[in-house]
Write a protein that binds this DNA or RNA. Sequence first.
DNA 1: AATAGTGTAATATATTTATAATACAATGAA
DNA 2: TTCATTGTATTATAAATATATTACACTATT
Lengths: 121, 121
Amino acid sequence: MKLTIDAKSPLPVYQQVIQAIKLEILSGGLRDNDPLPSIRDLAKLLRINPNTVAKAYYALEAEGFCEGRSGSGSRVKVPPGRQDGLRQAMLEGEFKGFLEKAATLGFSLDDVTHLMERTRK
Amino acid sequence: MKLTIDAKSPLPVYQQVIQAIKLEILSGGLRDNDPLPSIRDLAKLLRINPNTVAKAYYALEAEGFCEGRSGSGSRVKVPPGRQDGLRQAMLEGEFKGFLEKAATLGFSLDDVTHLMERTRK
DNA sequence: AATAGTGTAATATATTTATAATACAATGAA
DNA sequence: TTCATTGTATTATAAATATATTACACTATT
């Protein structure tokens, strides 16, 4: 499971953890009922405080993406049928956001297309 | 000058102000020596505290994007020759970020291309 | 000169974010 | 049962973020 924390990011650390795990779930890298790393393990891995990880897990749980049990651990909770729809929606949302930013910068859809073509070479 | 604040965004308000003004400068909507809105005016417009706007302006000044004078106001400070290069770099940076996220989600460059083609119709 | 508006600065308060250090009940395996 | 690990919870402290309020020197205009 790929996950890195950017201390210089304007995004709060626990938000970065939330986003990274969400991405991993939507990508299918983490499936329904898969175990998440323990709070203490992930904190040690990322070199951040366990409380910060717990806060992220708590938020993910509030959104229905996982569930934690005291003696056991935390497990991914996603209706398997929904995963791919969420994945597609996430892609389109990110793409829309990018296009809006490009438009704000004064770039046309053609400009973006050309950038894409250049990238493919 | 288009500028809105999303209170629900995980990004701090003053960071949102910084990003929005940077975008406006790089797009060419704000050119070298153009006046920025006064701190109090922008605060009233965005319904946030003047101190928060001042913090954003201070950060922009530290990055060399503007300059403030006491009795006068704040003005954009960008070497005119650099603007378009920065604009292009911003576009490519955003695109790269989007592609990375798409890759993490398990989408190929072909998938993104198809999404683009679908968008153009 | 007077005045309104400017950036800048300082103080105070509250909330959010992050860390540190414990504690405890629940779980699962030895 | 014993024991290590788990999520959860609490308390404390610090830093960052945001607001509120006030003050001051500077600028441009009247």
